[in-house]
Design a protein around this nucleic acid. Structure first.
Lengths: 334, 334
DNA sequence: GTGAAAGCGCTAACAG
DNA sequence: CTGTTAGCGCTTTCAC
């Protein structure tokens, strides 16, 4: 069933059918109804490929994320996909893994598929070295690129971020003020937002003239391997480093700290204070429940989508938007 | 840059360019190289829409899931997307929510977008009432439909499931044999696999002549609201129902049971045995670690993808495949 | 081996 | 208001 069939059965030209299909105004009510009736009768839907060829768009956005099974990224994808669909855009998903090479390859793939825009979900897409971000700049030469939780100042790239520096700074300060000594910073990412968080922690520690050094613990294992995270804290303890607080760069690491405490017979928060990040569902599944930083993911996603729609609509849009986070106090901190 | 430009610069016809692009055999090495050189020089990539129009496919699969931020579904999506991409297929994601109406709408949307196949991730897409599955049957009239963790016996629908009945049956039996009295079944889904699991529990209980009744606890709240789940167990206890075991239909519910135990001063597994389902990352994040049933998600996804590729390749493929689960013993059961 | 030409199904400019 | 027609960029017969 093509537009020709419909036009024939309705006794009009294909142009008219096309007009009613696209809601063009210049069609009389009568012919419109006639055409619509035929369309409904035969359950006709226009061929998306032909349409795409003519309009040079199929109204789809490419969504890239390192790993869609990561709790936080998955949530973001879920929000974004729904928002896009509400705006009549489809989503092509690409789980890229964490290597630069595969990220760049996925990017090219999406451009090949002629998406209207690309959303990079998660801060791990932006690297420290300028050259490593070239793939983003290149892509932005073709289609608008949106960054969630990362920023890059090049043309046609739009960034929506949470103010991770300030959140972490405030949280660290708060823990210091509560009298917690020797606060470990436990992190697993040196991405854009990873660096911001670390910087927030360091700024607070330095402000209070507290030593950093071995208190900054970088975990490089699998994002899901909690026992390995626990082991790293145990090893730290065995090395003679004493600590009474753990500020983690995400909830999973914080959960590991909690588990470390339990296995070591430490009371939380009496002997060990623990702070998470993301305020994910994980924060509620432990006991005591996890104090965590809410970085307003839904708000970020909403803003990101709105901005993208604006850009696609040819409007001038803000290149970078920053939202504040919020510390959600629960049972793992004093 | 179009195929015409390339053909011109290479001094051949567009047909020849098309041939080398599609790896057709009937091209001399010499012209092939000549064309390839020009293509590389200008970084030409064929227009996907035009290609789609000509071939009537853009090599994309629609992936539907109720909620891509669900831990289990997210994992499945991640596996599937990567497997599809390895097979040169792209993925259009659709988070449908849990209502029949929105599921059917998403299905139509995907068909409109002319995907080559549709994968329904999660058992919640198949309903008890025959009529409620009509949307699947309808879709299958257009493109092959793959079911992950659900089954439906209609043409062009292929099912890949874990043997949830047996897994749950064995696990329940095992707990009974361990001497645990009054085992609650804590579940939140009456979907295809939800029913299988429940049936497994009931079969084991009946076999041992144990009462069911109020021990079967259906939780109908949000999938992420652990406090609400805990509250339901507390309420059950307050109602005077005593229980010493909880078999949960997923790890989140099991975690809630664990939390209930802690808040009630119960020792696990001494006073309360807990069994989860899915063997997700959640199983490792608590203390003691959760005994859980591994339903071999990765294997299921692999098989599902292979089957889909086979179907798309025009081969005869098994309509339904069943894999066995495995009980992963950890610290929450004796 | 290679080229010419007929679609694929739709949109949009143009003419009436 | 409606119809005619020229593309959009590619694949694929069918000749040569």
């Amino acid at each position: 069933m093509t537009i020709y069939d419909i036009s024939e059965k309705a006794g009009v030209s294909i142009a008219t059918v096309s007009r009613v299909l696209n809601g063009s105004s210049n069609v009389s009510e009568k012919t419109k109804k006639k055409v619509l009736d035929v369309i409904r009768q035969y359950e006709y839907t226009p061929n998306a490929f032909a349409r795409g060829l003519g309009l040079n768009t199929m109204k789809t956005i490419g969504i890239m994320c390192a790993d869609s099974s990561d709790l936080y990224l998955a949530k973001a994808i879920s929000y974004i996909e729904q928002l896009l669909r509400a705006n009549d855009y489809g989503s092509i998903l690409c789980c890229t893994g964490y290597e630069l090479e595969t990220k760049a390859a996925s990017m090219n793939l999406l451009i090949t598929k002629k998406v209207d825009g690309i959303i990079l979900v998660g801060s791990n897409f932006i690297y420290e070295r300028e050259a490593d971000n070239q793939y983003v700049t290149d892509a932005a030469a073709q289609v608008p690129v949106m960054l969630l939780n990362a920023a890059l100042d090049v043309p046609n790239v739009y960034s929506v971020v949470s103010d991770d520096f300030t959140s972490m700074y405030e949280a660290t300060l708060q823990m210091i003020r509560a009298g917690v000594k020797d606060i470990v910073y436990f992190y697993n990412s040196t991405s854009y937002s990873g660096k911001k968080k670390l910087a927030g922690y360091r700024a607070a520690m330095e402000e209070k003239k507290l030593p950093g050094g071995s208190l900054m613990q970088f975990y490089s294992g699998s994002h899901e391997d909690i026992p390995a995270m626990v082991e790293q804290l145990k090893k730290l303890h065995r090395r003679g480093v004493s600590f009474h607080g753990v500020i983690a760069s995400d909830d999973t690491l914080a959960l590991a700290a909690l588990k470390y405490a339990r296995e070591s017979g430490l009371q939380v928060p009496r002997d060990l204070s623990v702070l998470g990040y993301n305020n994910s569902m994980l924060a509620m599944c432990c006991d005591p429940e996890l104090t965590s930083i809410d970085n307003k993911l839904e708000t970020l996603c909403q803003h990101l989508t709105t901005t993208l729609m604006g850009v696609l609509g040819g409007n001038e849009m803000p290149k970078k938007t920053i939202f504040s986070g919020e510390i959600i106090k629960r049972g793992t901190t004093r």
